[in-house]
């Protein structure tokens, strides 16, 4: 019965606690230094074992473990501290048991029970931390997608889509959808895709951009690729990417001039005395 193990853990609390602190100092020698600037962390050490105890006293209640994990994550303790902490706890408990239990048969059973006591805590730890991470990642991911790709109408029949950041396949799909829907919504005859903010243009990114411009042509509009920095021009040519089917311009400004030309318009300066044209 795990009860016997729990009794051991309760009765030998002081011994276990001390052995645990000692072993942790051996396992994670960098930890005391790490602890130095933050007073709270020495409490963290105590709390860790305390929470394990609280947990063992109310086996139904896993909230304590969860609260503890939350608390300790706020202190920015590395996750391997928690994992090693639990392993060390198990080892210490086993050693304590070994010292008092002489019957090898009993010992084996008690070892097994120790595992069964520690395992749920360990599982809860893994579950909670991965859930937190997964949630964070998915929030960041969807925020990134939302930030992704606005199509901005700048002049009648001319829109601009500034692309910022790395383009992966998922983003490329979203960019494509926004681009085409925007073209329809704004009646854009010309779309300028500005890649000034795209750090790397490799074959895949170029492929996505080419696909987007083909789709834009199919819905009846025209793409101009602008914001090509010299190093990107180099990679494009070095990789043998063919961009010759659609026009490119070095800057947004040149792109807008071209777009005006395509839509048969131009910018003129109105000087005084000359009046309007």
């Amino acid at each position: 019965m795990p009860k016997v193990v729990i009794k051991y853990i309760k009765d030998k609390r002081k011994e276990i606690n001390e052995a645990w602190m000692r072993k942790m100092a051996e396992e994670l020698p960098e930890f005391p230094n790490y602890r130095a600037p933050n007073q709270n962390l020495s409490n963290a050490n105590d709390n860790f074992v305390d929470v394990i105890y609280t947990y063992l006293l109310n086996i139904e209640n896993t909230d304590d473990v969860r609260d503890f994990i939350k608390k300790i994550m706020k202190l920015e303790v590395p996750i391997n501290y928690l994992s090693i902490g639990l392993q060390v706890f198990r080892r210490v408990v086993m050693e304590v048991i070994k010292r008092s239990e002489k019957d090898p048969e009993n010992l084996l059973e008690l070892y097994e029970h120790t595992d069964r006591v520690v395992e749920p805590i360990f599982n809860q730890l893994i579950k909670d931390t991965t859930e937190t991470w997964e949630r964070t990642i998915s929030i960041q991911k969807s925020e990134l997608l939302e930030l992704s790709a606005p199509l901005i109408p700048i002049l009648d029949r001319i829109s601009v889509m500034p692309l910022v950041g790395t383009i992966d396949t998922e983003r490329a799909k979203l960019i494509m959808e926004n681009l085409l829907q925007g073209v329809i919504d704004h009646h854009a005859e010309v779309v300028l895709i500005d890649i000034t903010g795209v750090p790397v243009v490799d074959t895949m990114v170029a492929h996505h951009i080419i696909q987007a411009s083909e789709a834009v042509r199919l819905v009846g509009s025209k793409c101009i690729l602008v914001g090509i920095r010299p190093e990107i021009a180099q990679t494009i040519v070095n990789l043998g990417i063919e961009l010759d089917q659609f026009p490119t311009k070095s800057s947004l400004q040149r792109g807008i001039e071209e777009a005006l030309k395509i839509t048969e318009r131009k910018v003129i300066t109105i000087t005084e005395g000359n009046g309007k044209q």
């Binding site: 959808e177 829907q181 987007a212 789709a215 199919l218 009846g220």
Partner: peptide, 15 residues
């Protein structure tokens, strides 16, 4: 001249 190709249709043609 083809007109009114929907965005989804254009995306799939390129796919």
């Amino acid at each position: 001249v083809l007109t009114g190709i929907r965005p989804a249709v254009a995306i799939i043609l390129t796919d």
